[in-house]
């Protein structure tokens, strides 16, 4: 296991707390109609998100999916423009053109989240190809779910990454359900074992609620990629606490209550708090992190509240590089 500084450990907890606080607030705002549409929260999956994003360097790339707020937050995006984007404000990170399903913050290497399941995997692969051709030492990571693991484009991409030795990490967030469908009912075999067919290492992180376990596994994959030794498939076992999307009320109970209880006992933020306490972090300091995350989310909401909605005059902006083509 890597030796981590106290600052890094603190930052890990802070980023997990930020994701939780941000998504809990977003969930409330959807239900109150303050956020239009819906959102998909990463609550319960914070260790998997932060363990992976913090294993990446500042200049590294990533692409993501519909469960999308955690990825840019984990990579260090400021919360204000993310929250403003969810609300549809002009100051949103995508100027209000993307919304919850399409967050992107190129400043931190977040190349965008995709509402089409599996569709952004080759985007990260292309970023890895850039790094390879330009020889700039960057690596790329694609986040995708257990559901997306059954999309053909994943395997086209793994094959290409393998044959070209791309500096690429395929990160499967196995929260064991794709909407209402249990992964085992639609998935033949073990996802991480599919890597063998492409001649690349496949790693399953069973303790996916342990941020350090995720961090270590992804760090190894990043090191391999950066050394020119090619791609890795990392499957992280985790669990989402909330419904597939906020406000979704499914008539059937496809998840069992005991299962949920068992996962709540392994809550990633609670587990890591205990670990940090065992490493000499004081209760005050740990409470302080929680207060900081909540305050940051309050500030993000205030920033969004104070921001204007986009003016109709900008509706066509960024369709093309030139205004004349959008007529």
């Amino acid at each position: 296991m890597a030796e981590l500084t106290r600052d890094t450990l603190r930052e890990m907890q802070l980023r997990m707390l930020r994701i939780r606080a941000f998504d809990e607030r977003a969930s409330k705002m959807v239900k109150r109609g303050h956020i239009p549409g819906t959102v998909h929260t990463s609550i319960g999956q914070e260790a998997q998100v932060v363990g992976a994003t913090m294993a990446l360097g500042a200049g590294d790339y990533m692409s993501g999916n519909h469960r999308s707020h955690g990825h840019p937050i984990g990579k260090g995006s400021p919360l204000g423009p993310l929250m403003a984007e969810l609300v549809g404000k002009a100051t949103g990170v995508c100027k209000g053109k993307g919304g919850s399903l399409h967050l992107a913050d190129f400043a931190v290497g977040s190349l965008g989240e995709s509402g089409i399941v599996g569709s952004s995997i080759p985007i990260a692969n292309g970023a890895a190809l850039s790094s390879k051709v330009l020889n700039n030492g960057k690596v790329a990571l694609a986040f995708f779910g257990d559901g997306a693991a059954n999309q053909g484009v994943l395997y086209e991409s793994m094959n290409m990454a393998g044959v070209w030795d791309l500096p690429m990490i395929f990160l499967c967030e196995n929260n064991q359900y794709a909407l209402s469908t249990p992964a085992h009912t639609v998935t033949s075999g073990i996802i991480s074992e599919r890597a063998a067919g492409f001649g690349m290492p496949g790693i399953r992180v069973e303790e996916g609620q342990d941020v350090l376990a995720v961090y270590d596994a992804v760090s190894e994959a990043v090191a391999r990629a950066r050394a020119g030794d090619g791609p890795t498939l990392v499957e992280v076992m985790t669990y989402r606490y909330n419904e597939h999307s906020e406000g979704l009320r499914l008539g059937t109970d496809y998840r069992n209550a005991d299962e949920r209880e068992a996962w709540l006992k392994k809550d990633p933020i609670m587990l890591f708090r205990h670990y940090l306490a065992s490493q000499g972090f004081s209760d005050d300091e740990l409470d302080g992190l929680e207060a900081t995350a909540l305050a940051e989310v309050d500030a993000a909401v205030a920033f969004s509240d104070a921001s204007p909605y986009p003016d109709l005059s900008v509706a066509f902006d960024d369709l093309y590089t030139d205004k004349e083509s959008a007529a």
Binding site: Y61, S63, L111, S119, S120, I121, P122, I123, A124, N125, G126, A127, A128, L129, S130, S131, V133, L134, N136, K138, A140, G152, V153, E156, S157, N159, M160, V163
Partner: peptide
């Protein structure tokens, strides 16, 4: 040369274009 993987090729080209190629 690419494998015969049009979806993967087009997506990778998009990602490459977004990152400097």
């Amino acid at each position: 040369n690419t494998p015969i993987s049009e979806e993967g090729i087009v997506g990778a080209a998009a990602g490459a274009a977004m990152t400097g190629l």
